[in-house]
Amino acid sequence: MFTGIIETLGKVQFLQSDKGNLHITVTSQISQELKVDQSVAHNGVCLTVVSVSGNTHTVTAIQETLDKSAIGKLKEGDLVNLERCMQMNGRLDGHIVQGHVDQVAECIELEEMDGSWLYTFQYDPSKGNVTVEKGSVCVNGISLTVVNSQEGRFSVAIIPYTYEHTNLQNVKPGTSVNLEFDIIGKYVARLMGRG
């Protein structure tokens, strides 16, 4: 389980395809503290650390993950948002995030405001996922508050700290991002659908 509060940025050093899998080697400030078999969210995707060497670590994404997320679109040199799993005795500063991407969205608009940024994302509503005004959504692993919720699209307002400390600084119209919708909202939607 994660919180959607990004711990640090990592940089993709090496990508290796292996049958249906993708091995992703990342360098970061926290890599040397990681342990093999530890879960770490990479752009919101929960991946298992398979090796650690100095300030780099490697994780493996299977075909299912590549099919359901934008993780397969990474290129060497790309920045990735990193978050280690939540400690049970810690504060939940963001919201409950599982690290299970629901679907990919595309940034369709970026508006620079006076000291902040407004990003608008579009996604396929036929998968049954929804946002609600002032609700939570996870974009590339970042816990954000929804504004302007509509069917198949929503916006998020980004403060300078989030812009500078996450890979949203590289997201522009046309960029694909990972979405994880609020787990409580998903359960409510499923239960309401039974009636």
Rank of each mutant, 00 (worst) to 15 (best):
I6P: 01
I183R: 10
A41C: 03
A70E: 01
L168Q: 07
Q63E: 15
K75D: 10
C85K: 02
G72N: 06
G115I: 06
Q122C: 09
F2V: 08
D93M: 11
T120Q: 14
M192K: 12
S28H: 07
I6L: 07
V177D: 08
E180H: 04
N148C: 06
I30V: 15
S17H: 14
T60S: 14
L144P: 06
I30F: 03
K127D: 10
K11N: 09
K127Q: 14
P125T: 07
Q169M: 13
Q16G: 02
H42G: 00
K73A: 11
Q13R: 15
V104L: 07
Q63M: 12
Q169C: 13
T27C: 13
I24N: 10
G195A: 11
V156E: 02
Q38W: 02
Y187I: 13
V45E: 06
T60L: 04
V177F: 05
S17V: 10
T175E: 05
S39F: 05
Y119K: 04
V139W: 02
Q29A: 12
V12A: 01
V104P: 03
V52H: 06
Q32E: 14
G174M: 09
S116Y: 10
V132K: 13
I30R: 02
G44A: 10
E112P: 04
V52G: 06
L47F: 12
L179I: 11
I96W: 12
V26E: 02
E106V: 15
H95C: 08
G94Y: 03
K186Y: 09
K134H: 13
Q38G: 02
G90Q: 06
I6W: 08
S51P: 09
T145A: 13
F14H: 15
N170K: 13
D124F: 03
G174I: 11
K186D: 10
L15A: 12
G135A: 08
N178L: 05
E151W: 01
G77D: 10
K172V: 14
F2D: 07
R190N: 14
F181T: 03
H23N: 15
N140C: 06
G99N: 09
A41Y: 06
V97K: 00
L79V: 03
N170S: 12
R84I: 00
L9I: 14
K172L: 05
N89V: 00
K73S: 13
M86H: 09
E133P: 04
D114L: 10
Q38T: 06
G185R: 01
D93Y: 12
A105E: 04
C85F: 00
E33Y: 12
L66I: 08
P173T: 11
R194K: 15
V101T: 03
G44H: 08
T166M: 03
D78L: 03
K68R: 15
Q63P: 00
